[in-house]
Simulated scan of single mutants.
Amino acid sequence: MVSVTTRIGQVKQPRGGYINPRDLSVVELTDGIQLHPAENIHATLVGLAVDYLTRFTLGTSLEEAFAISLRGARNVRELDYAMELISGINGLDDHSIENACQLVGFDVAFRNSLAAYTPVQSIQPDHFTISNIRTMVKRVIVFSKKYGPITKNGFTFEGGYNQTITTGDGDFLTETGLWDLKVSKSGPTNKHTLQLLVYYLLGLRSLHDEFDDIKELGVFNPRLNRVYVLPIKDIPSDVISEVASEVIGN
């Protein structure tokens, strides 16, 4: 299986990228809160916890929000423990966030390989990490009210995959926007912007007609509390054609 992110890692982009991140407009959202500079668990786990807890907070069932985590747990025969963790997630209290951080540790057993999995019991977020995750989830909720409503989360591209890209799932759709959630300490890279464009093109090829209404691609980074947006009409047609043919293929 080749995912969107794996495929993008294989591609040599032109100088500056197919879409230069500097072409995105930036909007600062302010809440007066300073995140703690250090977290004691891997950034990937933090990002997944923020993503899935946001989906749950916005109304998605726990089983659906943490679906990939549960698949990973099943692969390592730890589904009972995963269900125990999921039963302890009730909101954004400390215990719920601790459980979410352990639960997303199962993702690697589905997304990558069984060999990459390490027991999730070792994932013990400290007070500062828990506080940061809580703040970032709340920031995504504020973002969703300003730029939403969010019409779909955790979307996939049935009918759009091919032999080059066989898997991939995006974060959020609004009525006219396709959004990716990033919690990195810096702004988007050209890999991130290419990922957005590939998601959009896969969406157009898919069975889902909601992608026909998408007019902008964007990244929201709740760590930086910044919104990055690019209207699709501003992407040169030759860039779209080249990405469709050379990155995605037939």
Rank of each mutant, 00 (worst) to 15 (best):
residue 2 V to A: 08
residue 3 S to H: 02
residue 5 T to M: 15
residue 6 T to Q: 15
residue 8 I to H: 05
residue 13 Q to M: 10
residue 22 R to L: 14
residue 22 R to A: 14
residue 25 S to R: 10
residue 29 L to A: 06
residue 30 T to C: 10
residue 34 Q to C: 07
residue 36 H to Y: 10
residue 41 I to M: 04
residue 43 A to I: 13
residue 51 D to F: 06
residue 54 T to R: 02
residue 56 F to M: 12
residue 58 L to N: 08
residue 72 G to L: 01
residue 73 A to D: 03
residue 74 R to Q: 13
residue 74 R to H: 11
residue 76 V to E: 01
residue 76 V to K: 02
residue 78 E to D: 06
residue 80 D to M: 01
residue 84 E to C: 04
residue 85 L to C: 14
residue 87 S to P: 05
residue 90 N to F: 07
residue 91 G to C: 04
residue 96 S to M: 03
residue 105 G to L: 02
residue 107 D to I: 01
residue 109 A to Y: 06
residue 111 R to K: 15
residue 111 R to P: 08
residue 113 S to Y: 04
residue 116 A to S: 15
residue 118 T to S: 11
residue 121 Q to R: 11
residue 124 Q to T: 09
residue 126 D to E: 00
residue 130 I to T: 03
residue 133 I to L: 01
residue 135 T to F: 10
residue 136 M to L: 05
residue 140 V to R: 15
residue 141 I to M: 05
residue 143 F to S: 02
residue 144 S to G: 08
residue 146 K to H: 08
residue 153 N to V: 12
residue 153 N to R: 13
residue 157 F to Q: 02
residue 161 Y to T: 10
residue 162 N to V: 07
residue 164 T to K: 11
residue 165 I to Y: 06
residue 168 G to A: 08
residue 169 D to H: 07
residue 169 D to W: 01
residue 171 D to N: 08
residue 172 F to Y: 14
residue 173 L to M: 07
residue 173 L to K: 12
residue 176 T to P: 04
residue 177 G to K: 06
residue 177 G to Y: 05
residue 180 D to S: 14
residue 183 V to L: 04
residue 184 S to I: 06
residue 188 P to H: 07
residue 188 P to W: 06
residue 188 P to D: 13
residue 193 T to M: 07
residue 196 L to S: 06
residue 196 L to K: 09
residue 197 L to E: 13
residue 198 V to H: 15
residue 198 V to R: 15
residue 198 V to G: 12
residue 200 Y to M: 14
residue 201 L to K: 14
residue 203 G to H: 04
residue 204 L to D: 12
residue 204 L to H: 07
residue 205 R to G: 06
residue 205 R to F: 05
residue 211 F to G: 05
residue 212 D to H: 13
residue 212 D to V: 03
residue 214 I to K: 08
residue 216 E to H: 12
residue 218 G to F: 02
residue 218 G to Q: 01
residue 219 V to K: 08
residue 231 P to H: 04
residue 232 I to T: 06
residue 232 I to W: 10
residue 235 I to G: 02
residue 236 P to H: 04
residue 236 P to M: 02
residue 238 D to K: 12
residue 241 S to I: 12
residue 244 A to G: 15
residue 246 E to F: 12
residue 246 E to N: 07
residue 248 I to A: 14
